[in-house]
Design a protein around this nucleic acid. Structure first.
Length: 852
RNA sequence: GCCCCAGUGGCGGAACCGGUAGACGCGGCAGACUCAAAAUCUGUUGCCCGCGAGGGCGUGGGGGUUCGAGUCCCUCCUGGGGCACCA
């Protein structure tokens, strides 16, 4: 008798798994593979509970699949470039490289303490030139193939720090460091042509059956395919025409104005002559640029004085406005406004007194009286007030108007996408250098492949002002590979989403110095069978990876379309927040309950319990996983992560919860400890034939548990799997029989079933049950089918849909037998009081419903 | 503004295809052990009425489909997520 010592046991089994290289894998085409991947971490220096949840979920799947006989690849690495390293350099003067590698060392130790079944020999960090050199080579290959180009695009510019800001560095329109009002600037930047794959990225979503519908929908919306027409309007007094895109060309007869985005080229041209317009445009550019900001802002416009001619109503002249709600990067950056059938256009028209002419008549409405009030009509109907379109329904009218526009040479059908090309230039130091050279004579010249990698310089001065690589005294000066003359390196680095767009492939062949990865290794391991991470990556990271995989395919690196066959998105970890009366956040550790049940700080101040929110440092409601693992052990933390809450929902961290998990582990230990000595030796045959009473009940429970726990694990119902194992252990504790082999089978079953969740304790118990080989090397269990079938079942009996009684009948009994048994049931007879049922519904092996 | 998701006991949640609502756990209550406490164990626990047998109500609100609705449909309310340089 003794207590389970997690400190000793966890260190012991981690050492043994290491020494025996239990989780190291090699490609083996003779065996089925399974690739489990959690989204790799950014090395911030400390793991947080979100990581613990993420890796626990992945490890359960990895260990289950391994036990089921798969050759499991389960790697770990570091998404090591990024802004925080530069932040640390600015704030504390630490070199980003030193900071990053130190953080990696610390986080590796913290992650290792979780006891994950990871092949650590495959570890790499993306800031290592051994990694990013291949990225540079792939970028050049994609450039060759025309998948990379350069164009001007808008950035947030901090005029004091002379630097580009990320959206998160812009706080209330001001730079996070300088506090200066942020300006919008155009800068030449590098782009990946993700739009070249828009159609395929959209269509292929339908085939990603093991992705959450929610994520697929978000990607569909992001890609945003819409069918419509491009229409060219004659501008009075000018030679050029104004092109617009519309998804509702059928409403062209209802047009009453034109509107340009504030940064439309025509707007800029007119503003040069019109100070009022210039001021209006400047005002518009101050506001946010997100769709949400644009669509909630009050609709305002500026009449440019220009007039356009409606191509299908040549007598109608439309005023041309510059308007704050028109998106410059969608469609052509200009629209025609039809107030009757678009809410934004309607609000605009009401503000500026423009006509509202309905052209779509809802079913049943009277054309003589139909009018638009506060709400635009966007539904179906028949066209009217529209000459040759009159009487057509909306889809037919769309087709017809496009034909007419084509005939007039004024437009054509067009598919427009919300998806824009991926801008990857970042004006920062701690990223992968973009391998390009700017030559005054030859223009942009790629760095020759044999000169790769373009290394980041170590001697760097990071002040937060300007672009560090650009300010470096010598680094950017080089010679042109084409003409040999003096030239300059590109001083921008890649968006860190580039590194994370192919790391899953690198894990298949992480040491390759010749090329990013070997084709065969990737052909064996990819796609990732189960990818696990946060919903926050639902669009960008996952879409970029899908694009990159296609681009790598087209550049001949691999033969694959989709990188992630299965995706699971986990919920957040939340925790109670506390504030004092002044509104300052308090750490939970400071808060105590006083006699009256109220909350006080340790020094007696009143405390207000806030909402349960996502763990975050700013709200002081984080819990440090390393401390939890120290106190309770990794298995307890893992079990808590899996219990109670379904993994795709938010999980509230509570002291009671972690305590409950800890107590359960100790109970498991006692269950085995109290019974181990009396058991027959390992391998003693167990007989399932002729069992009765408590023995039969236990055997049935054991085998039902094997089936149900396996099913729950495979379907990511980990909270249910834990509950089912608890039922099994409850049954084992209640067992009073003396069938030693059966009891051994029961104990071994629960130990085997719980191993993916609490591997250290499971190994310890397995050893205690007399086994010499590792549980981690022991196959998964299959239930004995003879113990899964019941010969009699209990059927609920309903009267008028309410359960009133239950009857026991043979499994598969026919309707007549069940009906007779139900009507003979004393409780049923009593309630019927001699009345004859009007109808009896029998659903075989499910239910009886007596209708009176 | 647009798109999407969720809402079940005091709490976390379970209920797979429309078929016994509340598995499993936390908490509570009562008891055992103990000088006492902790730990552990046993019983009990959706709400209301009733001594009891038993009955009524109950899955955010309202309506509908069905022999039967937490589950399907309509509508409303509340909370959450996404809408292009954090990772």
């Amino acid at each position: 008798m003794g207590r389970y010592n997690h400190r000793v046991s966890e260190a012991k089994w981690q050492r043994i798994w290491d020494e025996r290289r239990t989780f190291e894998v090699r490609a083996d085409p003779s065996r089925p593979k399974y690739y489990v991947l959690e989204m790799f971490p950014y090395p911030s220096g400390r793991i947080h509970m979100g990581h613990v949840r993420n890796y626990t979920l992945g490890d359960v799947i990895a260990r289950l699949k391994r036990a089921q006989g798969y050759n499991v690849l389960h790697p770990m690495g570091w998404d090591a470039f990024g802004l925080p390293a530069e932040g640390a350099a600015i704030k504390r003067g630490i070199h980003p490289k030193t900071w990053t590698w130190n953080n990696i060392a610390e986080m590796r130790a913290q992650i290792r303490a979780m006891g994950l079944s990871i092949d650590w020999t495959r570890e790499f960090a993306t800031c290592d030139p051994a990694y990013y050199r291949h990225e540079q080579a792939m970028f050049l290959a994609m450039y060759e193939r025309g998948l990379v180009y350069r164009k001007e695009s808008w950035v947030n510019w901090d005029p004091v720090d002379q630097t580009v800001l990320a959206n998160e560095q812009v706080i209330d329109g001001r730079g996070w460091r300088s506090g200066a009002p942020v300006e919008r600037r155009k800068l030449a930047q590098w782009f990946f042509k993700i739009t070249a794959y828009a159609e395929d990225l959209l269509a292929a979503l339908d085939r990603l059956e093991r992705w959450p519908e929610k994520v697929r929908l978000m990607q569909r919306n992001w890609i945003g395919r819409s069918e419509g027409a491009r229409i060219a309007f004659e501008i009075l007094g000018r030679a050029d025409r104004l092109e617009v895109f519309s998804t509702r060309p059928d409403t062209l007869f209802g047009a009453s104005f034109m509107a340009l985005a504030p940064d439309h080229p025509l707007a800029a041209e007119l503003a040069a002559q019109d100070p009022g317009l210039a001021a209006f445009i400047a005002e518009c550019l101050k506001g946010g640029t997100s769709e949400a900001a644009l669509e909630t802002v009050e609709k305002r416009g500026y009449d440019t004085g220009l007039r356009c001619r409606n191509p299908v109503r040549p007598d109608q002249l439309l005023p041309v406005y510059v308007a704050n709600f028109v998106l410059s990067e969608y469609g052509t950056g200009a629209i025609f406004g039809c107030p009757a059938h678009d809410q934004r256009d309607l609000e605009f028209a009401r503000t500026y007194g423009l006509p509202v002419r309905p052209v779509v008549l809802p079913e049943g409405a009277d054309p003589a009286t139909f009018a638009i009030g506060e709400e635009a009509y966007t539904g179906d109907g028949r066209l009217f007030n529209s000459a040759f379109l009159d009487g057509l329904d909306v889809p037919a009218a769309k087709k017809r108007i496009v034909q007419e526009l084509e005939r007039l040479g004024a437009g054509r059908g067009e598919v427009s996408w919300r998806l824009r090309d991926w801008g990857v230039s970042r004006q920062r130091y701690w990223g992968c250098p973009i391998p390009m050279i700017h030559c005054p004579g030859c223009g942009v010249v790629p760095v020759p492949v044999e000169q790769l990698p373009v290394l980041l310089p170590d001697d760097i001065d990071i002040t937060g002002v300007g672009n560090p690589l650009d300010r470096h005294p010598t680094w950017k000066h080089t010679s042109c590979p084409r003409c040999g003359g003096p030239a300059q390196r590109e001083t921008d680095t890649f968006d860190t989403f580039v590194e994370s767009s192919w790391y899953f492939a690198r894990f298949c062949d992480p040491k390759n110095s010749e090329k990013p990865f070997d084709r065969e290794a990737v052909a064996y391991w990819l796609p990732v069978d189960q990818y696990i991470g946060g919903i926050e990556h639902a669009v960008l990271h996952l879409l970029y990876s899908r694009f990159f995989t296609r681009a790598m395919r087209d550049c001949g690196y691999l033969d694959l379309d989709e990188p992630f066959a299965g995706l699971f998105t986990q919920g957040m970890i939340t925790h109670q927040t506390y504030r004092d009366e002044q509104g300052n956040w308090l750490e939970p550790g400071e808060v105590v309950k006083d006699e009256s049940g109220g909350l006080r700080t340790r020094d007696g101040r009143r405390v207000i319990a806030g909402r349960v929110e996502k763990m975050s440092k700013s709200k002081l409601n984080t819990v440090d996983p390393t401390e939890i693992i120290e106190t309770y052990g990794a298995d307890t933390a893992r079990l808590f992560m899996l219990s109670d809450s379904p993994p795709d929902r938010d999980l509230e961290w509570t002291d009671a919860g972690i305590d409950g998990a800890w107590r359960y582990l100790n109970r498991l230990w006692r269950i085995v400890d109290e019974r181990a000595a009396a058991l027959p030796p390992p391998g003693t045959p167990v007989r399932h034939e002729g069992l009765e009473g408590a023995d039969l009940a236990l055997a049935r429970l054991v085998h039902r548990s094997i089936a149900s726990v396996t099913d729950a694990l495979e379907r990511f119902h980990f909270n249910k799997a834990v509950a089912l194992i608890r039922e099994l252990t409850n049954g084992i504790e209640d067992y009073r029989g003396d069938n030693g082999p059966l009891l051994r089978e029961a104990l071994e079953t629960f130990v085997r079933l719980i191993e993916p969740m609490t591997p250290h304790l499971a190994e310890e118990l397995w050893e205690r049950l007399g086994h010499r080989h590792l549980l981690a090397d022991t196959p998964w269990l299959a239930p004995d089918p003879s113990l899964l079938v019941e010969d009699r079942i209990v059927l609920p009996v309903q009267i008028n849909g309410r359960r009133r009684s239950e009857i026991s009948v043979p499994k598969g009994a026919d309707a007549a037998t069940v009906e007779a048994a139900a009507l003979a049931d004393p409780a049923v007879r009593r309630i019927l009081e001699g009345r004859a049922p009007r109808r009896v519904v029998v659903v075989a092996d499910k239910i009886v419903n007596v209708v009176v």
